[in-house]
Design a protein around this nucleic acid. Structure first.
Length: 921
RNA sequence: GGGCGAUUAGCUCAGCGGGAGAGCGCUCCCCUCACACGGGAGAGGUCGCUGGUUCAAUCCCAGCAUCGCCCACCA
């Protein structure tokens, strides 16, 4: 074995072997356990957020597989309509082409090509991350059988009246030329202006002042509204305005929507271009005049001078013309929320179009109760609040998109505009009773990506067929996802799951945080802060990293800045850390309800941890391979052997408990602590004298070797869900020595707490041994005594128990403390001048004999004494308060009394010692 | 305007009613026969602020401050 662990040598090879052994497929026996991989978008490559999420899912999956469950981790990818289409459109643009140049079919072909390459990349990345998904069941949302599921769901919902087509205002993206759902609208506060216009009354008798942030829409005004109780305007209600520029007469109406306090208390109403105005328009039966085209330029319904103008140019012209007409009252700066498309970033328009909608409220009701009554549980719990908040106020869901990439809407139109829905054209005809000679044209639009995603928990398992997989793994066990898609995806899966399967899609929803960069910013391509998980795993040189971050950008002008920032952040590039180190980092940062700030120095720390484990195993193998490790022979376990097994038991218990609660950080921490600070720091050191000593019996040595391999073998199983590769590589070497069979650690049973007994006596004795050694080391460290220099140590006032423990462990103490001799001091015997360590009531003395400076020892003792004095003062203050003694539980009071006594005794001893050292100084 | 979360050692984070912990970084000493991606010894925190509940508060409650996220139709 190499002296330093090199992950690159083993990871790829081991993954291939797992695949060959069929380790990822469900066992077919045991309780079903199922996780659905949130299908990554085929827009490119996996980022750190995916790697984080995949680590959590893989750890859970491996844990349950080892515990004997019938475990399925279902993989797949999502076609991601808008996002993917945009990626390919950008590529075309770079070639000077537009998708219209190719035509729909060729363009979609081109996206399929892209999908292939992106999908392959994602698969490769998942494999490098160690993801133990069942590749044989891999699905893509546009696979034929999943597309059938989509159509089936659409037809059924339509049949039940839960999907309808209607002309309403939608959020329209004038750059992408498509409708969006409410969720795809992001609102950022931006600075704008508020223009105050004077609208003359038609009869020439004065004017009203209205304020607007969007002057261009005034061309579509069909009313002015005031509050019904506003005395200022009561007499104007029912009269008419002569709308400037447009020259139209429009009524003054009264509606409670108007806030009399804001602005003038008069509002211009443009029903076709504002969601509130639309509602008012419907209430009052107002005309809806659409003044925009689908690219947000002005259309035929405006005066000739405005036709074809872009909305922003039109805005300027309206303002200029109103000003020229003397109707511009004033302009003020105004902060407002501007709606933009989450993908394009374009300012969206409320736009009157025909679209398909899902009646969401009907589906939402049972989805709400499912969480209320605990059939679905959020972890952490408080996310259910977010979930309820949204579902209780849910709006109908616009599911049609004017795109080419996606599931074509299964609706056909006859020449008279009749709509016919069916699984395919023939089915649509049959359902509508149409003869073959009626010409039908399929709807050009595709479905919102999230419509198919909502079916993912059952469409991947074969629905609408009633498959064995569906019976076994629906509902899934747990969904692991980020809070950012609770509405987009989680809520919709629950709605659709209940609707089509009659049960929730998963029992628990584990919500993890977002991965952020070192500055706490969301990683994004446009900020140039993305990291490919593989670059942390394999390492990357600086030039390659800069190259990766600055190609294929939406805003090439940022290139120079990103390159500079990258060179500053990673002057040496990124060194290789291996998959396991990255995974352990994610696990250790996976606390609930908190974002993850990725800290490369932490990854480095866990890479060192891998190395530590590697070398500990090397040591164990060096001492056990080819040796008698106790198969059948007599065993005489020593203190260290009993102790480490007891600690292992506790570690297993803590770790399992943490996994139950999805606290991977606590599991990782417990295992780390055990591995490094108990197994390596203490046990391996304690075992060295035991194994090498000539005094040790064969049975003792055998027991030590047995414990070495057994504990290590169990530790590797314990750690495997988080660090699959290194544990597999080591386990294959260690297992045979431990007498354990099997080809892979993946399919071994996970350690159970009862596998190893707790041993309280061993832990107590070991605590004394550790205190002894630490005390000697402290004197050595603080007194600057050379590490190699052997010390003489005396024990004063040692109890029978101390003496017993001393006798039992003398060789250990001497070896680890680098001690030449340990002598108990006879009662009453005078002690030489010494440095002192308190071991409970016993004093451990290191005679100064020229190697200890009295002043330094005085300083050391005084520091300890002062600390104890302040502890004692606090303790006494507490005990002196009658309220404490009377009200606190007896056990707490007793404990406090004992503490005070012990501290006082310790101070006493330190004082005595101080006196003696002072006498020398 | 509502809702949620955060505020603990220089940095990244655990803990959460009975004397504050880890990793990284820092200081000092060591290339000791598994490991210098290492070993040993240290320094470093009135646990954001102000009140309240309690015998006891970093932990529970209220308010405030700062930061962050989500939702929301004030033209």
């Amino acid at each position: 074995m190499q002296k330093t662990y090199s992950p690159e040598d083993i990871e790829v090879r081991i993954y291939a072997e797992w695949e060959r052994l069929g380790c990822f497929e469900p066992s077919g026996t045991g309780a079903p356990f199922c996780i659905m991989l949130p299908p990554p978008n085929v827009t490119g490559t996996l980022h750190m957020g995916h790697a984080f999420q995949d680590t959590i899912m893989d750890a859970l999956t491996r844990l349950h597989r080892m515990r004997g469950d019938n475990t399925l981790w279902q993989p797949g990818t999502d076609h991601a309509g808008i996002a993917t289409q945009m990626v390919v459109e950008r590529q075309l643009n770079a070639e000077g082409l537009h998708r219209r140049d190719l035509g729909r079919e060729a363009f979609v072909d081109r996206i399929w090509q892209w999908k292939k390459s992106s999908g392959d990349t994602i698969e490769r990345q998942l494999k490098r991350l160690g993801a133990s998904v069942d590749w044989s069941r891999h699905k893509f949302t546009m696979d034929p059988e999943l597309s059938r599921a989509v159509t089936h769901a659409f037809v059924q919902l339509h049949e039940e009246g839960l999907i309808y087509r209607g002309k309403r205002l939608v959020n329209w993206d004038p750059v992408l030329h498509t409708a969006l759902s409410d969720l795809e609208v992001v609102g950022e506060e931006e600075s704008g202006k508020l223009w105050h216009f004077s609208y003359p009354l038609a009869d020439g008798d004065g004017a009203l002042v209205v304020a607007t942030t969007r002057p261009e829409t005034m061309l579509g005004d069909t009313a002015v509204a005031v509050h019904p109780d506003d005395p200022r305007y009561a007499s104007l209600v029912g009269r008419e305005i002569l709308l400037p520029i447009a020259g139209r007469r429009i009524p003054v109406i009264a509606d409670d929507y108007v806030d009399p306090e804001f602005g003038s208390g008069c509002v211009k109403i443009t029903p076709a271009h504002d969601f509130n105005d639309y509602e008012i328009g419907r209430r009052h039966g107002l005309e809806m005049i659409n003044v925009l085209d689908d690219d947000a330029s002005l259309n035929e319904s405006v005066p000739a001078a405005y036709r074809g103008l872009d909305r922003f140019a039109a805005r300027e012209r309206v303002v200029a013309e109103m000003d020229a007409l003397g109707l511009l009252e004033r302009v003020e700066d105004h902060r407002m929320v501007v709606p933009r498309g989450d993908r394009s970033g374009a300012v969206l328009e409320p736009y009157l179009t025909d679209q398909w909608y899902v009646k969401a409220a009907t589906l939402a009701a049972p989805a709400i109760s499912a969480v209320e009554d605990g059939r679905v549980r959020f972890v952490p719990e408080n996310w259910s609040k977010t979930y309820f908040e949204w579902l209780n106020n849910i709006q109908d869901w616009c599911i049609s998109r004017q795109l080419w990439w996606g599931h074509r809407i299964p609706a056909w139109y006859d020449p008279d505009g009749g709509v016919h829905v069916g699984a395919d054209e023939a089915d649509a005809r049959r359902r509508s009773g149409l003869s073959a000679d009626v010409a039908l044209v399929q709807d050009e639009d595709v479905l919102d990506t999230w419509f198919s995603s909502a079916l993912w928990p059952f469409s991947t398992l074969g629905w609408p067929e009633d498959t064995p997989a569906l019976k076994t793994w629906y509902p899934g066990t747990v969904l692991v996802t980020g809070f950012d898609i609770i509405f987009f995806w989680v809520a919709r899966m629950i709605m659709m799951g209940i609707k089509f399967m009659g049960d929730v899609p998963f029992r628990e929803v584990y919500i993890h945080g977002l991965v952020r960069d070192a500055e706490g910013q969301k990683m994004s391509k446009s900020k140039g802060s993305v990291l490919d998980p593989l670059d942390i795993i394999d390492g990357v040189d600086l030039d390659t990293l800069v190259e990766k971050r600055t190609t294929g950008m939406m805003q090439p002008q940022l290139r120079a800045r990103i390159a500079e920032a990258t060179r500053k952040e990673f002057p040496q590039g990124i060194s290789a850390h291996g998959t396991d180190a990255l995974r352990f980092t994610f696990a250790s940062l996976a606390t609930t309800g908190r974002d993850v700030r990725l800290d490369l120095s932490r990854v480095e720390g866990y890479r060192n941890f891998c190395n530590k484990l590697w070398n500990a195993s090397r040591f164990v193998l060096m001492n056990t391979e080819g040796e008698d490790c106790g198969a059948g022979g007599e065993l005489e376990p020593g203190l260290a052997d009993r102790w480490i097994r007891s600690r292992l038991a506790e570690t297993v218990r803590v770790s399992l408990e943490a996994f139950e609660a999805y606290r991977l950080d606590l599991a990782a921490q417990a295992i780390y602590e055990f591995t490094w600070h108990e197994f390596c720091d203490w046990y391996l050191e304690l075992v060295k004298p035991a194994i090498n000593s000539e005094d040790a019996t064969a049975a003792q040595k055998r027991a030590a070797r047995r414990t070495l391999v057994e504990v290590l073998e169990a530790l590797l199983r314990l750690l495997h869900p988080i660090m699959p590769f290194i544990t597999e590589a080591l386990w294959r070497r260690v297992a045979p020595v431990a007498g354990v069979g099997g080809e892979t650690v993946m399919l071994q049973p996970y350690p159970a707490p009862d596998d190893y007994p707790r041993d309280e006596a061993a832990e107590a004795e070991m605590a004394w041994v550790q205190a002894f050694i630490l005390g000697v080391r402290q004197v050595r460290g603080e007194m600057n005594i050379a590490p190699g220099r052997p010390l003489e140590v005396l024990l004063q006032d040692a109890s029978e128990q101390d003496l017993g423990w001393l006798r039992a462990n003398e060789p250990l103490l001497m070896k680890l403390g680098r001690i030449a001799a340990i002598e108990p001091l006879a009662a009453g015997a005078a002690a030489p001048p010494s440095a002192t360590v308190l071991l409970g009531n016993t004093k451990l003395l290191v005679p100064m004999a020229g190697l200890i400076d009295a002043a330094a020892e005085i300083a050391r003792l005084e520091k300890q004494r002062d600390k104890l004095r302040s502890d004692l003062a606090k303790s006494r203050a507490k005990l002196d308060k009658p309220s404490f003694v009377e009200n606190a539980p007896a056990a707490v009071v007793d404990k406090e009394r004992r503490r005070a006594e012990e501290v006082a005794a310790s101070i006493e001893k330190l004082e005595q010692q101080l006196e003696r050292v002072h006498a020398l100084a």
